[in-house]
Simulated scan of single mutants.
Amino acid sequence: MKVIGLMSGTSVDGIDAALVEIAGTTLDLRVELLAGATYPYPDAIRSQILAVCSGERLSLLELAALDDAIADCFAQAVQAIQVDRPLAVLVGSHGQTLYHRPTTDRAMGYSLQLGRGALIAAMTQIETIDNFRAADIAAGGQGAPLVPKPDAYLLGHPIEHRCIQNIGGIGNVTYLPPHNQPDWERQVCGWDTGPGNSLLDLAVTQLSQGKLTFDRDGAWAATGRSCKSLVQKWLEEDYFRAVPPKSTGRELFGAEYLQACLLDASAADLSAADLLATLTDFTASSIADSYRRFLPRLPDRVLLCGGGSRNLYLRQRLEHHLPHIAIETTDTAGLDGDYKEAIAFAVLAYWRKCGIPGNFPLATGAKQAVLLGDVHPVY
């Protein structure tokens, strides 16, 4: 089955689209990437998304208009990636997260993704599945991370313990025990590790007065010096001690959190480059710290994906904090790291059509495995 997966993460870099051919179900799952591309949002829409994520208020009229505008961008991505290529019969769209409130002992979680699937289906004339997080939340889960199950069947290994570490705006990890272990599927776990690129991108935008939106290859940060005492201070944030399953977003690691970091950096007399080096080290340290706290054992290999996997300085800091562990990208395992998340949502849509649950309860905290996603047929 030819499926298009669509994903735009908390960095709001653009819409990742992956056109894939999928066969099999779980243990025999096979995915071939036919095409992958990233389609940037128009500047006005991206700015509005970031403003709303930072607390700007919208009327219901404005919210509806933004929902439609995002759906239009997603539909255009579907149409663009199919030009001169085989046509898909299904679209799996994660949408654009505007708000995520994790599930707690006292309250069910809430997660809002805009870019309504019904409009994507109407515009593209392709059946579309969206709203993947809602069913897991209804079952008592966090609604995140949802990639562990696709990761398990696409990137697991017969004898290696692996971690699949996505570094988007927020970082998330999937732990995969070897497939040769009895009942290995019940040991797969995952959680949001904390900030990925979110604080870095916000800092770069502010420090460059909007001339830059990210630090390419970590080149600017690499000219600075990390302040270890600040990294340790920031790691005292309660989130890092909370036991998984857990999830987070810009609601915590966003503009307000960065302002506190900037105050600390100013008090420590850090230069702009030193601040970026420290924030980069903070992301790497938070990932390594969560592995040591919560994994049943450290992995033999870490496979990186997402935009942060291309940040050479971030990767160096991760290698520093996880010595003696092979750190590569998912590309080395045959899955394009730039589109791995979009591919995952193509798989989740495919499983929804096949009647196969898409969540791993140990990763999300749901009471049971459930079908994920709302189906929007073509009329």
Results as ranks from 00 to 15, higher is better:
I120M: 09
A138I: 10
K149C: 08
D136R: 06
M123L: 15
L87W: 10
Y99P: 03
T128D: 00
D136W: 04
A118L: 08
A135P: 01
L119S: 13
K149V: 01
K149P: 06
A88P: 04
T124W: 11
T97F: 07
V89W: 13
G109H: 00
R85P: 04
Q96A: 04
L90P: 06
T104C: 02
N131I: 12
Q96L: 04
G115H: 08
H100P: 02
G109L: 00
I120W: 06
L112T: 02
R106P: 01
Q125K: 15
E127W: 13
R106K: 14
R133T: 05
I137T: 01
L87Y: 12
Y110A: 14
A134C: 07
T104V: 02
R116G: 09
Q96T: 05
A88T: 05
P148A: 06
V89G: 15
V147P: 12
A121Q: 03
A121D: 02
G109Y: 01
R85Q: 15
R106Q: 15
G140S: 13
E127D: 13
G117F: 00
R85F: 09
F132V: 03
Q113V: 11
K149A: 12
L119A: 14
I129C: 02
L87G: 10
T97K: 00
S111F: 06
G117D: 01
P148R: 08
R133Y: 04
G95F: 05
F132M: 05
G109Q: 01
A144S: 14
A88N: 05
Q113N: 09
G115A: 07
G143D: 05
